[in-house]
Computed example of a mutant assay.
Amino acid sequence: MSDHQRSEPSKTADDRASLTAFLDHQRATLAMKCEGLSGEQLKRKAVPTSGLTLLGLVRHAVEVERSWFRLVLNGERITSFWPRTPDGEFGEFHVADADVDEAFAAWRASCEDSRAAAADVNSLDDTVEFRGEPMSLRYILTHMIEEYARHNGHADLLREAIDGEVGE
């Protein structure tokens, strides 16, 4: 598995540069985990006790990016890219008939939108109010790093089960 698209975050950058670089590193890690796989492999539920798939994780990343940066940070009214199923489950995880190219294009666009939204905020300490609670850009970036890191752990296990590839 290559890591040519990932860059290591600076060990001496200021807070904002560190947080955004670590988030981009986590985004690139998810892309790396999916690299070189077929659509069928990306849709495979590779761990018998789990319904997770790599494509489902990418589609979930679209929803998370849009939710935190467009809904919370920008206060936009948005709807889910992949609506919930009739029984209330998150639609992004249902990938049997999903379009792989659409999912990756939506994810790349969502990441770009998120970067632009964060860049428009003057300070990491600037807050927005969401559901009666103040949230800073610092919190949102930190939460997004945590979100990707957790799901990249899932992606690592899925990738290893699919084709034996391992790596950070």
Rank of each mutant, 00 (worst) to 15 (best):
R84H: 14
A21G: 11
E133G: 07
E147Q: 09
L55F: 09
A117P: 09
D15T: 09
W68M: 05
E165Q: 00
E63Y: 05
L158P: 00
R159M: 00
K11F: 12
R84V: 06
F93A: 12
E165G: 00
E63M: 05
A161T: 02
G36A: 13
L19I: 15
I78G: 06
A98D: 12
I162F: 04
A61P: 05
G153R: 01
E40L: 09
M32N: 15
A149V: 12
H143Q: 13
R44G: 15
M1L: 06
T142D: 13
L158N: 00
A119M: 06
S67F: 11
K45A: 10
R66P: 15
I162S: 01
S10K: 04
F69R: 02
Y139S: 13
S7C: 12
A103V: 10
A116Y: 04
V128Y: 01
C34M: 13
R70D: 14
E147V: 07
D125H: 12
R59V: 01
C111H: 13
H143K: 09
E63F: 05
A13R: 10
V121P: 03
R77A: 15
L71N: 11
A28P: 09
A118G: 04
I140Q: 03
W68A: 07
A117E: 10
L57W: 01
D3E: 11
F22D: 13
S67P: 03
S18R: 15
C34S: 14
G75M: 10
R27H: 15
V95D: 05
C34L: 08
A17T: 10
W107K: 08
D14W: 06
P48Y: 15
S7E: 11
L55G: 14
P48F: 14
R150I: 14
V95L: 03
V58W: 02
C34E: 04
E65F: 00
V47H: 03
P9C: 11
A161F: 01
A21E: 14
